[in-house]
Amino acid sequence: MIQSKEAYDLTMQEIDSLMKRGEANLTAGELKRLTVLAAAAEAFEDLHDPMPLPSSLQEIIRIRLLQLHIKQNFAAKLLGVSDAKFSLIMNGKQKPDILFVKAIHEKLSVDANVILKAI
């Protein structure tokens, strides 16, 4: 666990050094060390410099689709709406109805509190 900004900076330098060598050129021990360092750095960043939450429902959906590697036309089907309705919602030309919002929570596994703060 990283306890200070100085330790974080050193960790990032070591990560950078290992990454510059390329994953294929690292030993099994170095790969394991890289994984541990990356997890520790991420935990420190989440605690001390968290990423801001998206400010709109459309941003939340876009980010989640990227994370899940889902295209918009598949997302529309998954969420139970037509491609046209999905496009209108994503472009801010139509407000989402409760069934759409519920589908975002259930089908895309987006926290309901995050959704409520965005709408």
Rank of each mutant, 00 (worst) to 15 (best):
D46C: 06
S109T: 04
L53Y: 12
L57W: 02
L31M: 14
L10F: 10
L116Y: 04
I61V: 15
L31G: 12
T11Y: 01
L99F: 13
L78D: 00
K93A: 09
H69Q: 12
K85S: 05
T11G: 11
S109L: 07
R62Y: 07
E106F: 06
A76Q: 03
I98F: 05
D49R: 15
V110I: 09
F100L: 03
P96N: 09
V81M: 06
L10Y: 11
K77A: 05
A43L: 12
L57H: 05
L78Q: 01
L65T: 01
D46K: 15
I60W: 04
L68T: 01
H105F: 04
E30T: 12
A40M: 13
V101H: 06
Q13H: 07
H105A: 01
A40K: 13
F100M: 00
A38E: 14
Q13C: 06
Q58T: 02
L47P: 04
Y8E: 08
S87R: 07
P54Y: 13
D83M: 02
T35I: 09
M12T: 10
M12I: 13
D111V: 02
P50I: 09
F74I: 00
L53H: 10
A7L: 14
G22P: 07
F86Q: 05
E23R: 15
P52S: 11
P54I: 14
M19K: 15
A7W: 01
I60Y: 01
P96F: 09
L66A: 14
F100Q: 02
M19Y: 00
D97P: 07
A38M: 15
D46A: 14
